[in-house]
């Protein structure tokens, strides 16, 4: 083999690069990590597996229903799974899913997704300002 001083480091760099997950996960001590979600109390509006893949489409549809047809009573969602009617609002979700951190964020952090919905919209774990004098308010209004 010619040019061993270049070829052997090249092979080592290739192996280190291709097997990045191994040394990265070893350093983070997260081999085979699987997120654990808090099991919600009730039944979901749709099939559980379908929701796992498509909940963002459902929320998008609900958003459209609320914005375009909300005033005309268009916020009724007919479930394809159970046939029941639901109010097309994230508050329907929060009735069962009591914590965003223990349910939504588990998977979202797992695959590195940060939906910007909850920058503004209500979640049960939102930090609400309780009026305790002007000093504490400065925390919420800089």
């Amino acid at each position: 083999m010619y040019h061993k001083q270049y070829v052997i480091p090249l092979i080592l760099i290739f192996l280190a690069g291709f097997f990045t997950p191994y040394w990265y996960n070893a350093m983070a001590e997260s081999f085979g990590y699987v997120p654990e979600m808090k099991k919600p109390a009730g039944e979901c509006v749709e099939n559980k597996d379908w929701m796992a893949a498509n909940h963002m489409l459902l929320l998008q549809q609900w958003r459209t229903q609320a914005i375009r047809h909300g005033a005309e009573g268009g916020r009724i969602y007919h479930s394809s799974t159970t046939g029941l009617e639901y109010h097309a609002s994230t508050n329907t979700c929060w009735e069962c899913h009591e914590s965003k951190e223990e349910f939504c964020d588990q998977c979202h952090d797992y695959v590195g997704i940060h939906p910007e919905c909850w920058d503004c919209h209500y979640t049960p774990s939102i930090e609400k300002p309780h009026y305790q004098g002007t000093d504490t308010l400065s925390k919420f209004f800089s």
Partner: peptide, 22 residues
Amino acid sequence: FKADLEKVKELLMNLMVFDVGK
């Protein structure tokens, strides 16, 4: 046609540690 990405990552993480059963 959405796929459940959490399952996908779970599959890959288990493949990486040779946890074939899971």
